[in-house]
Design a protein around this nucleic acid. Structure first.
Length: 342
DNA sequence: AAATCGTGGCC
DNA sequence: TGGCCAAGATT
């Protein structure tokens, strides 16, 4: 019942998105569905669009993507965040090419085994690209279903979501639920007045749609400090590649010291007359905030561990946003030369 | 299984 | 402006 209403709404109000086929049309290329779904994990549509277009133009097929080098793919992902997605993207592409003949497996169960594909993404690709009536539960669906039935537990939401999922047009239905959640049943100030299923909605009837879904309180973010070192020589700056796992894993970066303790200039990659830029770069991650002080020095270009990167091509290094901020600060200070010696 | 993992936009 | 949030996965 409700599913039909939502599909009818989708037929008239579906968003037009670069990775999407219109309602009722033949399903899009699984490669495109997969690429978009990975990028969209915990990431807004607006942020994904330019990355998706760039990736698709540069790597139009899974074979092309599988042949990419790690460094160029990580650089292309720079700025989008959650960088383990990029590593898993490449691992997944190579697995599909090497073990599945370059074709994505068509079932959610098989998709689920691939790197970077969890319960949600497996169901979404199976439904959208292959027409499997998989139960697709993302943050949008959780919110819509929790409100429709005034449910508090994730388990209850999943059961209801499964009961609601239609055998026909499962891909359109999944996207319809996500569009409904993204444009009408929003986290704050939901547009209940124009909601197609308002009359079926318990949360609306109870007069407090925003009370669902119930979120556990979030712990406070600790604050950390660190130094980043801008070492320049002969028009080049020293960059390192961070370890594959952990924060900003696998990304190019400025050398840094320890994050947390009282940061020390002793953590520099080598002794130099470091000048401290002010103010530090402030950056907020998911679970902590950071003040990154940038220390600059002109040095002799030697065999320090890392890459000496041409400063006039720094935009091609693929620095994540934190280090892009630090680099911009250093380049700006470099023009004005007002740094304080220390 | 709780912690970890980015970033930008919004109010 | 600071907290909240976004088409979650991994360990």
């Amino acid at each position: 019942m409700t599913a039909e209403t939502i599909l009818a709404w989708y037929d008239r109000h579906a968003r037009t998105l670069p990775w999407r086929s219109p309602p009722g049309a033949s399903p899009p290329d699984p490669y495109r569905v997969w690429l978009s779904e990975i990028m969209l994990q915990q990431t807004t549509v607006a942020a994904v669009k330019p990355y998706y277009e760039r990736f698709l133009a540069r790597w139009p097929s899974i074979e092309a993507l599988a042949a990419a080098e790690d460094a160029e793919l990580m650089a292309a992902w720079a700025g989008l965040g959650y960088y383990s997605r990029a590593r898993n993207l490449l691992a997944c592409a190579r697995t599909v090419v090497a073990e599945h003949g370059g074709r994505f497996p068509a079932s959610s169960a098989e998709l689920r085994r691939l790197p970077g594909i969890g319960d949600y993404t497996a169901a979404a690709i199976a439904a959208i690209a292959f027409g499997e009536p998989a139960v697709v539960v993302d943050g949008n669906v959780e919110r819509v279903v929790a409100r429709l039935f005034a449910l508090e537990s994730k388990a209850a939401v999943r059961l209801q979501a499964a009961a609601l999922t239609p055998a026909e047009r499962p891909g359109d239905y999944a996207q319809a639920m996500m569009d409904l959640g993204a444009t009408i049943c929003t986290p704050r100030n939901p547009a209940c007045a124009i909601c197609p299923v308002r009359s079926d909605c318990r949360a609306f009837a109870l007069g407090a749609p925003e009370a669902w879904p119930v979120r556990p309180p979030k712990p406070a973010k600790p604050h950390r400090r660190a130094f980043a070192f801008w070492a320049e020589a002969d028009g080049h700056v020293l960059l390192v590649t961070r370890p594959a796992k952990g924060l900003l894993g696998g990304m190019r970066a400025l050398p840094t010291g320890a994050w947390d303790a009282q940061p020390s200039l002793d953590d520099a990659p080598f002794p130099a007359p470091w000048r401290l830029l002010d103010p530090p770069v402030r950056h907020v991650f998911t679970h902590f905030s950071l003040d990154l002080s940038v220390a600059c020095a002109s040095v002799r270009r030697d065999n320090a561990a890392g890459e000496w990167w041409p400063m006039d091509r720094l935009d091609q290094a693929g620095l994540p946003t934190l280090f892009d901020k630090a680099a911009r600060l250093a380049l700006r200070e470099r023009m004005t030369e007002t740094a304080t010696a220390c």
